[in-house]
Design a protein around this nucleic acid. Sequence first.
DNA 1: TGGATAAAGTTGACAGTATTAATTTAATAG
DNA 2: CTATTAAATTAATACTGTCAACTTTATCCA
Lengths: 214, 214
Amino acid sequence: MARQSFSEHEVEQRRAGILEAAMTLFESGGLEAVSFRKVAAVLGCSYAAPYRYFPGKDALLVAMRAQAFRWMEREMLAAIRPQDPPRQRLRSLAEAFIRAGVGRPQRYALMFFGLTEGAGGPRSLELAAAKRDALDVCTRTVEAAQAAGELKLAVDPLTASHLFWAGAHGLVSLEVAGQLVMGRSLDELVPPMVRTLMQGLEDPQGLLLRQGRS
Amino acid sequence: MARQSFSEHEVEQRRAGILEAAMTLFESGGLEAVSFRKVAAVLGCSYAAPYRYFPGKDALLVAMRAQAFRWMEREMLAAIRPQDPPRQRLRSLAEAFIRAGVGRPQRYALMFFGLTEGAGGPRSLELAAAKRDALDVCTRTVEAAQAAGELKLAVDPLTASHLFWAGAHGLVSLEVAGQLVMGRSLDELVPPMVRTLMQGLEDPQGLLLRQGRS
DNA sequence: TGGATAAAGTTGACAGTATTAATTTAATAG
DNA sequence: CTATTAAATTAATACTGTCAACTTTATCCA
């Protein structure tokens, strides 16, 4: 006796459409270029229509951030080749993270510079999952290297992957924000950073066993 | 034959007043609580008056960021006691940075999460100087440790201080943004991070000379 | 002392924004 | 065909940054 509600799939499709439009605006003009009204204009609907699929702008931004984390996860996964030794995979991972972030500074800023965490609505579960999955790529790689005996950690693998993640993020973050002193390009800093992270994670005995280096 | 312009000092005083009002608003309600109109309301002037001292909101935010960097510089300087050995000073520096940032997450976010760098107006020179001075505290401490023979760097001191800075920032940044996996408190991560940074910066030979360990 | 002058400050206006409420459209079940 | 109701649109409110026109006011000079 009434108009049938949209199926879950249809709703998801509309959400995806809104998200895509928002992302397109974001890529071309940064956060300032993202507004419900512009999104609606791109989609050809009225400016209040998206409210049916996102309770507010915060929710839209959260979804955008989750998407950015998914992208980063893909970038990292694409960089680690199974045939490489675990230690090399860890290096590739760090390099991929850094280069992806620096290559798309706006997207990277969207990921990490979200100041309003948004009180954890139902949709921030998706964001949390996206973050966890991205970090998991890192954690698994660290664990694999340790399991293969190629990495002697001075701390537990989870802590190690957090430190690894934090170090890589710190470097990208500073570069993206233009904080690195002029004249020092990222190419100068990436290799020492990766080496510092790898080396710093290991206990001295591990270093001794393999005579240091790399 | 005309009303005398304000002296440089008077202008600076008004700028400082606006800045202070903006900071107060920021501390209590985040970036959303900062607007020219609210600042003016606090100061008791009309909403367009601040435009005489800041060309726009971006310029105001830049000045706020510079002030935050100056604060961080003071925090770090207060933490390094001259009587401590250089190595200990470096550790204290890192701890101070991390604890200051985590203790005031909003202010920290203001420092590093400024997405709009603002095309470098005349006032962003002050921001650049504030950033440089803060980083210099770190660089000088690293150099002192190296000069005292207490730190055998694997890279040049400037690169080392950048890595140090990046690592500390990465950790704080993740904590502030709530990216660290739940259950892992900062107290768990700070000591390993500091050790990782210190250890990672050193060349293997230096480690050998002092038998490893921090 | 009495304008003239120009800086400092105020007000009004415009274009945008997020968000909510009221309204309209349209599909479908009976 | 009609009642129902989800979806979409429109109207409206309360903000925002920014600029232009206007008013106030302190000073200098005649």
